[in-house]
Design a protein around this nucleic acid. Structure first.
Lengths: 248, 248
DNA sequence: TCACAGCCTTGACCGAGATCAAGAAAGTCG
DNA sequence: CGACTTTCTTGATCTCGGTCAAGGCTGTGA
């Protein structure tokens, strides 16, 4: 598997698949050399916990491949997912050693980890990492606020349609899986994970997916595979303005 | 009124009430001089719109006094508040000229505005503004994610208790309004604004406030004034862990 | 002082989504 | 291939919060 290869082989930043989108995107060659010295790869299996709330994290990291989730849990067990980490997304907060959410691998995940101390001091001395991190954090804040609208005001059907359109859009921008106008993609999340993301129960998620299928908005060849014959039709179901939609 | 005074009198940064908490907190004297040159004050009356989604903003700004709200609106009128701007909070995004939410003055508001172009170039050249802005943005992201938990998973009663405890906590840290163990504070928001913040209807907000009053968790001498006889009791109603609670 | 507007409360009813429960589909391991 | 687990679907029922409606409180302005 690629994961084990990566863990041994110390991939050169220059060859990194997320090089131009991650926190290191703006770095010059000399800055990359600095980063090379403080980095190491770790991989996690699907379902594995990367960090628990309250854990001391000795590193910050970029997601190289796979998907991880951030979630909050109330003491009685109710949980709410508060973020998805996709390839190139950054995990951890410079200046804070203690994790404030649970981080879980939704799929197999490879992370490019930076030892905390050297990374933090690099943040102070060279501007490019901090500038890029600010940009990424502002984008995440926008996404979080868009999600607040979804959680607070959208119906279950709109929530599902919104999630599907986000995943579809993201997949369309990376993989190019479309067959004659139809978008095709795999769901990287279980029904339960979707429920936790959308503030619903897994039963409601299942019912609404069935309803969208019944109404011809989507097809599902398998339970984890989605075909969208008409993307605009899906967008209509999200409740968003015709033009805008999500920024993610 | 103070607002009109501020608008005329160009207050010195050194005397600014939010000097040590705002985006300029880390600035040295020479950097403050730069800021003085690009800044101007504006005041807004309660209820006034500061920016509409889609507006071109020629400035970014710090809230000096008062409270402003950020909100998203769906085309059919459903609205969700996605942030509160309190004194020292920052409004606008360097590098983006177009507002992405509606900004409204909840109370009378005074803002310290910075002309966009000079501010952006200062961000590129001096690190202190960007560093502080990163820190503030990370805090806002934490707050937004905490709010996602509230919106997605809390009951109406827990939502109200959470909002009250946040306002109480914030008031306690600034004003020192407590009389023999009881916290006393004013609600800066209408029932409708609370509803928009909490993802509820104003009727539900009203009912839950009445319920908390009936149960002795709060007293309300007037409709906008809250007395909390036992803060721990209020915290129990928020659904959060006993210790933690909100970071805001 | 009265009328009006804005804000808030309360009641009656309804419905979207939660809960409880059963079983089907699909993958995994002996 | 069959037992078992995990994941997903579907049905029956319940409930929290939304919707609709009426009226109360407070302040402002004629």
């Amino acid at each position: 598997m690629i994961t084990s290869e990566l863990e041994n082989l110390n991939v050169e930043c220059a060859d990194c698949p997320i090089r131009h989108r991650a926190v290191c995107a703006r770095c010059e060659t000399d800055e990359l050399e600095l980063l090379e010295q403080m980095k190491f790869y770790r991989s996690f299996e699907a379902g594995q916990t990367i960090a628990w709330t309250g854990d001391r994290m000795e590193f910050v990291a970029s997601v190289v491949s796979g998907i991880a989730t951030l979630s909050h849990t109330l003491e009685d067990g109710r949980t709410q997912m508060v973020g998805l980490l996709l390839p190139s997304d950054f995990m951890g907060r410079p200046g804070r050693e203690i994790a404030t959410y649970d981080v879980t691998a939704a799929t197999d995940v490879v992370m490019c980890c930076f030892r905390r101390r050297p990374f933090e001091s690099m943040m102070m001395t060279t501007p490019h990492v901090a500038q890029r991190l600010l940009e990424m954090t502002l984008d995440e804040l926008d996404a979080a606020r868009e999600w607040m609208l979804l959680l607070g005001r959208k119906t279950a059907r709109e929530k599902i349609a919104s999630l599907l359109s986000i995943i579809a859009r993201r997949d369309a921008s990376l993989n190019l899986a479309r067959s004659e106008g139809s978008l095709v993609f795999d769901l990287p999340l279980t029904r339960e994970a979707m429920a936790d993301y959308l503030g619903l129960t897994l039963e409601t998620v299942s019912r609404q997916i069935s309803a969208l299928k019944r109404d011809g908005v989507i097809l599902l060849p398998t339970k984890r595979q989605i075909v969208v014959p008409d993307f605009d039709r899906l967008l209509e179901e999200t409740g968003d303005d015709a033009d805008g939609g999500f920024l993610v």
